[in-house]
Each structure stands twice: as structure tokens, then as C-alpha cells.
């Protein structure tokens, strides 16, 4: 595996850049919608955010080649943090 000659990280950076602009655009577009559509967009924005976190973790922090316990701990954090935010958010919206 030759890291130095791989453009993989450049592609990841470009994806992160594009996804960030997409979530910002989605955030701005929320002004023009109402009802449960707003909640769906918010959910999409948070999921995109945590997907970006995972990209940074796996490719930039090199966790995809790290020992399994470390990789799993990071993945667990992504799932727990994202689930906690969304569960609290939806619990409030639905009551």
C-alpha cells in the first residue's frame, strides 16, 4: 500500500468540501419549507455531518488501517453521538 502516491485523500477532501456546501445550502433552504419537511432536512444535515466525521476519521486520521479496537471505538462514537442528537431532536418534535 503506497500512501504517498494515492490521490485518495484529495478525493476525500473534495467530497468533504462539496458535502459541507450541500449541508449549508440545505440549511438555508429550510427557510422556504414548513412542517415535517423541516425536520427531515435537519435530520439529513446531521447525518451528512456525521458521514463527514467518519470520512475524516477513516481517511485523514487513518483509522481504516488502525487496530480494530480504535477503529470500533471511533465508529461507536459516531453512531452514539449522532443517535443521541437525533433521538433527543425527534423526541421533542413528536411530543
Amino acid at each position: 500500500m503506497k500512501f504517498s502516491e494515492s490521490p485518495k485523500e484529495l478525493i476525500v477532501w473534495l467530497s468533504l468540501f462539496a458535502l459541507t456546501i450541500l449541508s449549508w445550502w440545505l440549511g438555508e433552504a429550510q427557510g422556504g419549507i414548513t412542517g415535517h419537511d423541516v425536520e427531515m432536512v435537519t435530520t439529513a444535515i446531521m447525518l451528512l455531518g456525521f458521514f463527514k466525521v467518519r470520512l475524516v476519521g477513516m481517511y485523514f486520521m487513518e483509522l481504516r488501517v488502525a487496530p480494530a479496537p480504535l477503529r470500533l471505538a471511533f465508529d461507536a462514537w459516531v453512531v452514539i453521538a449522532c443517535a443521541a442528537i437525533l433521538l433527543v431532536y425527534w423526541q421533542v418534535q413528536l411530543t
Binding site: 449541508s23 440545505l26 440549511g27 444535515i45 446531521m46 456525521f50 486520521m61 453521538a81
Partner: peptide
């Protein structure tokens, strides 16, 4: 530091 901001930005600035 990057990872934490990636979550803080949508959470504080974008979530409606």
C-alpha cells in the same frame, strides 16, 4: 479539532 467543528457547525448554525 476538525471533527468536533464538523458537528458543531450544523448543530448550532443549521439545525432548525
Amino acid at each position: 479539532v476538525d471533527v468536533l467543528w464538523i458537528v458543531l457547525f450544523p448543530l448550532i448554525y443549521l439545525v432548525k
